[in-house]
């Protein structure tokens, strides 16, 4: 999972901001626990347990490739999909700025 180190640092950096990284895990509990102990892990954000790649959440969202990323603004509207690295970070920070501005009104 090449994204995990970047995700860990984003979670750390954005503590206290109106931001949440939420996973939908497709490993099932046992493989997840193994992964947490492996050198790819740990996952430091909350994940829904969808059981496997054909779980109810994956099917409802029509996910057929992994990882799949959706960025939602503070009102729950999808603003970006399938971005990574710098593109993801910029999208998130821009939306946080908008959320903070809206909260001040």
């Amino acid at each position: 999972m090449a994204m995990m180190p970047h995700e860990r640092s984003l979670v750390e950096e954005l503590k206290g901001k109106p931001f949440a990284l939420i996973g939908i895990n497709t490993d099932g509990k046992d493989k997840y626990e193994e992964g947490q102990k492996s050198d790819k892990g740990p996952v430091t954000w909350r994940s829904f347990d969808d059981g496997n790649t054909q779980g109810p959440i994956c099917r409802a969202w029509n996910i057929d490739s992994f990882p799949s990323i959706f960025v939602l603004d503070h009102e729950g509207v999808i603003q970006q999909m399938d971005c990574r690295g710098e593109e993801l970070e910029k999208a998130v920070k821009d939306l946080i700025a908008k959320a903070e501005a809206a909260a001040k009104k």
Binding site: M1, M3, E7, P18, F19, A20, L21, I22, G23, I24, N25, T26, D27, K31, Y32, E34, G35, S38, K40, G41, D50, T53, I57, C58, W61, I63, F66, P67, S68, I69, F70, V71, L72, D73, H74, G76, L88, V92, L95, I96, A99
Partner: peptide
Amino acid sequence: VVVLDFYGF
């Protein structure tokens, strides 16, 4: 702001 990440190890 929420990032949803569908993933697996």
